[in-house]
Amino acid sequence: MKPSLPPFALALICAIVLPACDHSKDASATYVAPAPGVIKNANFTDVTAGKLNHWALLQHAGNNSYELSVSGSILTITRTGTEPWGKLRQILSKEDVAPLMGRTLEFSADIKTMFSNNDSSMIAEPALKILVKGLRKGTPPMLGRSSVLSEKTPIPTAVGETPWQRIAVTFTLPEAGEVQNVDLEVAFLMTMWGQLQIRAPSLVVVEPAATH
């Protein structure tokens, strides 16, 4: 009969061995980004003359109040001034959007925040947003395109550093016969003081077009 270990010895072995086998802290080292779908420059490495291709940073007005920086495949938006909002956006062309009409899509990204204070004067919560513009059926072309669809998912505004979390907004594009000359904007809205980090943005079809 083999000798058994006393309970305190078993506890000691577990305390030593189990943490060594716990790889949860190394999860970031094995991170695999989801497919970007139709997003261009999803790893933020396509740059020309110091300018990030396919993405644009906009702000409310006035002096520059938001800055971009990229480390690896992580983009950081830092608020540096008093303008109430900044927005990083990508606009998909009509050619990109045409095959997606009538389908349900998901725009998502990994988000990590380091907000320094909850600004009571902010005009809106930080968020992932989509905006669809087009010419509605029957609208005279001279009137131009208008907003057809707008959706968003707020980003939590907790003060301090937060862990990475996947945030998504799901929406359905109108049928091709309902709207023409459609383009689609996907964006990250920043309204807090501090930093907003973005990793692995993706825009994919989650439900095919209905068949008639």
Rank of each mutant, 00 (worst) to 15 (best):
A29P: 03
A127K: 05
S93G: 07
A49Y: 05
H54W: 07
G86D: 08
A42K: 12
S4M: 08
T113V: 00
S4F: 09
L88E: 08
E175A: 08
D26R: 15
K133Q: 07
Q165N: 09
D26M: 10
V159Q: 08
R103E: 04
A187T: 02
V132C: 00
T45Q: 15
P7H: 10
A35Q: 11
T104G: 01
F171V: 01
V179D: 07
S121K: 10
E95L: 12
L203F: 04
S202Q: 13
N43V: 06
F44W: 10
P84Q: 12
K133A: 00
A20Y: 09
P84C: 06
E175V: 01
I130H: 03
K94C: 04
P6A: 13
S4G: 11
A61W: 15
K112S: 02
L189C: 01
S73R: 09
A11T: 11
A42N: 13
I91F: 05
I13G: 14
S65T: 12
I13P: 07
N43A: 14
A124M: 12
I16L: 14
E207R: 14
R89F: 04
A209Y: 04
A49I: 02
P163D: 08
K25Y: 10
A200I: 05
P7L: 06
L173D: 03
V204G: 09
C14V: 09
S24K: 08
N181L: 03
I77V: 12
I123D: 13
T76R: 13
V97K: 05
I13M: 15
G177A: 08
E185W: 02
T139D: 11
T30N: 10
A9H: 10
S121Y: 07
S116D: 11
F188S: 06
R136T: 14
A168K: 13
L203P: 05
A210M: 07
E161G: 11
R136V: 12
N181E: 15
G194Q: 11
K94E: 13
L10M: 12
I74V: 15
V169I: 06
E175C: 00
K94W: 03
L75M: 09
S146Q: 13
F107C: 00
E161S: 15
T170D: 06
D96C: 05
P208T: 04
P154C: 01
A61R: 15
M101P: 00
L75W: 08
E95P: 03
L149A: 13
A35R: 08
I13K: 10
S65Y: 10
